[in-house]
Design a protein around this nucleic acid. Structure first.
Length: 808
DNA sequence: CACCCCTGTATTTTT
DNA sequence: TACAGGGGTG
């Protein structure tokens, strides 16, 4: 396939790049010069504009790929952009920097580590590591762990860093007792980070800003190099990221005459849903003030949804105060009405959703992969999982406890991090006694005190312990520590011998006894932990392989591309660690668009239904969307009800939820919902009332208020006469699910058969107990078994993912 | 030092 | 309901 870039650059128009765009899109692609803000409503072709713009810069404006920096928030977005630009311009896209804010900063910081007088192999601490370190610090400062919870301290310090307030000046910004003590914690926290040769996520941004501000020549180097800076999801930038962009681009020519780079930011204030993480909508709202000569282009034409869906979205979002008006429209027609449903409780709601999906698939209206179910908080996924399992609907939950946040995965990675950076004290202390090897709190404290007193690193203190130079340490602990140090030394030798990452990992799991311990356990959760570790080994294996492949077919390094000093060797242990620290596993979201080439297997019921929070859904789209739990106190969340600002953010969240839908949108709520064990009656979400009544077709409404009071117990499937068997099935399902306790329904369904069963097999299920397999059906991801659990009933279960059941 | 039981607590979470 | 962290005991 020939790429558009092969077109002769100066033959008049570049119609291939702009011909199929609407006028606003084309203007955004062709704009040159002053800073550009593209206000891109949901589904308005934002990624298209960005990628075309990059291709256009190369083709029509003779930019060099090496001059382009495109910044996103997620690796997934970065990968997608790189791929789509690659389709347009070919291999030359390799010379561009297309990355997330964080990995871009890591790349810069590793290159410039010397300037900042630090080592380029620094560890990257995520939220969990940061909290661990804060726990240690707070304990050392004798702070009351109730009043000064690591969580709260972490949040506060993170906010300070997002505002570019460093530890020295934090004290003067403190307005109350908590903040004053937190400022002290901050100082010590930074000291310990630097001692551990580590940075947290916020440091990556802040230190890069600092680098640019303190060393103008460094800033100038990057400005000279990157003449075009593009930022995606600009509404989600925080103050530090905004400043970073500004420093990168520059406001006026440098002394040696480097002009500011050309800036293009794309975003949608209405989709700003990360204020709680420090994102400030101000950045997009005030863009024209920050860059006075800026131009703004609005993209309002939507290519995703029906007009009905857009009208619902417009109606809801327009209730937000102080908002720049923007109305999405489509030329594609009204489509179906929004379907509403008022359920008696969350089980009924889930039954409705499941029944509806079943029917849509039966009728050939949609396939499973066309459908997404959204909820406000992760714990709401459970009722859906329960009923989907019972009905045999294939599904997958995205989010929740993510792969790299699982304890066993983090333990394993902590070993690798210690191997890559022995000063990484947080990781070292994490694994010190994992698996249990007789080094308890007492011994750890002795070593820590010794390290502190002698001003040496924790590893050195451990070695002192081996040499019996640590006071107060009992011989038993000393012996345990000696064994541990020897274990580490063995692993260091392995690393030095240049063995590949996966093999190091295997050695860690074997030599520490970690795997053996899990193997020996009969806890079913430990079995899934083992699987996760195997998965991690596979990830490492593939990492090395793909690095080798990339090296094999790498193009000649660009002439004006300097080698990246300090950047880890591809495929190496540090490179692997960098990858896993800066990657979330959002890539696991299944493709939903039926238009793609490799989709022609079973047409009707292919794929799986996707379940996720609304936050996770941002940026995705599905033909059929179920928005669930639309109740005041749930969505909008209870904690937002009294706060206008938070309520506005919840409304944006509702807007995001609605605009994910292409053809069909369902909204539902439950009259009563069990939260934290207690049933609570919640009123309808105010957002439901904000959708114009004529757009909604209510399948079932609330019992007329006034008398009555208590909600009816029986579910009446209003408006759907003649589908009695369907509702009966659903009623059984919801009725039988009252007692919960289903555990281990993992979040990462792998489409593998976890259990091979045949009729007659005996099984033990976590919830239903002992049973006999009556029959089996289907294969692969859709394998199910009908099992007689005696008094617990006969149930059809899916066999994919982590089935909470063992074969006897 | 390890284990067990108790209690308190409970959004969303791109990196 | 579920989990993590604290405190007590073996």
């Amino acid at each position: 396939m020939s790429t558009l870039f092969d077109l002769p650059p100066d033959q008049g128009s570049h119609a291939d790049l702009t011909g199929d765009l609407n006028p606003a899109q084309r203007a955004a692609v062709e704009h040159a010069g002053v800073p550009l803000l593209v206000v891109a409503g949901a589904g308005s072709g934002k990624t298209r504009v960005l990628t075309r713009r990059i291709a256009y810069l190369l083709a029509a404006r003779s930019a060099h790929p090496g001059q382009i920096m495109a910044i996103t928030f997620t690796n997934k977005a970065a990968a997608e952009m790189r791929e789509r630009v690659g389709e347009l311009v070919g291999r030359r896209s390799g010379a561009m920097w297309v990355s997330t804010f964080h990995s871009m900063c890591v790349r810069v910081l590793r290159r410039e580590a010397k300037t900042l007088e630090m080592s380029s192999n620094f560890s990257i601490y995520d939220a969990d590591d940061a909290r661990r370190l804060l726990t240690l610090v707070a304990r050392d400062l004798d702070l009351d762990s109730k009043r000064y919870q690591p969580r709260a301290l972490a949040a506060h310090i993170s906010n300070l860093k997002n505002e570019l307030i460093d530890s020295e000046s934090a004290g003067s910004h403190a307005t109350n007792d908590f903040e004053r003590r937190a400022a002290e914690v901050y100082v010590e926290y930074q000291r310990r980070l630097s001692q551990a040769n580590a940075m947290d996520f916020d440091d990556l941004i802040m230190r890069t800003v600092e680098l640019f501000q303190v060393f103008p020549d460094v800033a100038e180097y990057y400005r000279r190099r990157f003449r075009h800076v593009l930022v995606d999801e600009y509404q989600d930038t925080n103050h530090a990221q905004y400043t970073l962009v500004r420093e990168l681009v520059g406001r006026e020519p440098t002394e040696s005459g480097v002009e500011p780079a050309e800036l293009c930011v794309v975003g949608d204030a209405d989709q700003s849903i990360y204020a709680f993480r420090g994102a400030t909508i101000r950045n997009i709202e005030e863009f024209e003030r920050d860059f006075p000569d800026a131009r703004t282009i609005l993209l309002e034409q939507n290519y995703r949804s029906t007009q009905t869906i857009l009208s619902a979205a417009n109606a809801v979002i327009s209730r937000n105060p102080n908002r720049r008006d923007k109305r999405l429209w489509t030329s594609e027609g009204d489509g179906e009405k929004v379907v509403g449903y008022v359920a008696d409780n969350e089980h009924d709601e889930a039954a409705f959703v499941a029944g509806e999906i079943d029917e849509l698939v039966d009728q050939g209206v949609a396939k499973y992969s066309d459908v997404a179910v959204f909820y406000r908080t992760n714990n709401q996924s459970r009722v859906f999982e329960e009923i989907f399992i019972r009905l045999g609907l294939p599904y997958r939950v995205v989010g929740g406890v993510r792969f790299y946040e699982r304890k066993e995965v983090r333990d394993a990675l902590a070993y690798l991090r210690v191997l890559a950076n022995p000063d990484d004290t947080v990781s070292l202390r994490r694994i010190l006694n994992v698996p249990k090897r007789g080094i308890g709190d007492r011994a750890e404290a002795c070593v820590a005190t010794h390290a502190e007193r002698e001003r040496i690193s924790f590893v050195s203190a451990l070695r002192d312990a081996v040499a019996d130079k640590v006071p107060m340490l009992n011989p038993r602990s000393r012996k345990a520590i000696t064994a541990f140090v020897e274990l580490l030394d063995g692993l260091y030798e392995l690393v030095d011998s240049g063995v590949e990452v996966a093999d190091i990992l295997e050695a860690v799991l074997d030599r520490t006894g970690y795997r053996a311990e899990l193997d020996a356990s009969d806890d079913p959760q430990d079995a899934s932990r083992l699987e996760n570790l195997d998965e991690l080994v596979t990830v490492a294996r593939e990492f090395t392989e793909s690095a080798a492949e990339a090296a094999a077919l790498a193009p000649e390094p660009d002439a004006d591309e300097e080698p990246d000093g300090g950047v880890p060797e591809p495929g190496s242990l540090p490179a692997f660690l960098e990858r896993v620290s800066l990657v979330a596993d959002a890539d696991s979201i299944p493709e939903s668009d039926g238009g793609d080439a490799d989709d022609d297997e079973e047409a009707d019921d292919a794929g799986v239904v996707t379940l996720m929070t609304v936050h996770t859904a941002k940026g995705l789209e599905y033909p059929v969307v179920f928005g669930t739990g639309w109740e005041d106190g749930v969505f909008p969340h209870l904690r937002a009800l009294g706060e206008p600002k938070e309520l506005a953010e919840e409304r944006r969240l509702a807007y995001v939820a609605i605009t994910r839908a292409r053809e069909r949108l369902y909204v539902s709520r439950a009259l009563v919902r069990t939260q934290w064990g207690q049933p609570a009656a919640n009123p309808a979400s105010r957002f439901l009332d904000e959708i114009p009544a004529e757009l909604i077709d209510w399948r079932r409404e609330a019992p007329s208020s006034g008398g009555g009071g208590s909600p009816r117990a029986a579910t009446t499937w209003g408006g759907r006469p003649g589908t009695g068997s369907d509702s009966a099935q659903s009623r059984i399902a919801s009725g039988g699910m009252r007692t919960t306790g289903f555990k281990g329904a993992g979040n990462d369904w792998k489409d593998t058969v976890a259990l091979k069963l045949d009729a007659g097999d005996r099984v033990n299920h976590d919830k239903y107990g002992l049973g006999t397999v009556v029959s089996t059906d289907g294969s692969g991801p859709r394998a199910t078994a009908t099992i007689d659990f005696g008094t617990a009933g006969t149930v059809r279960l899916m066999l994919i993912g982590s089935v909470p059941m063992v074969k006897l």
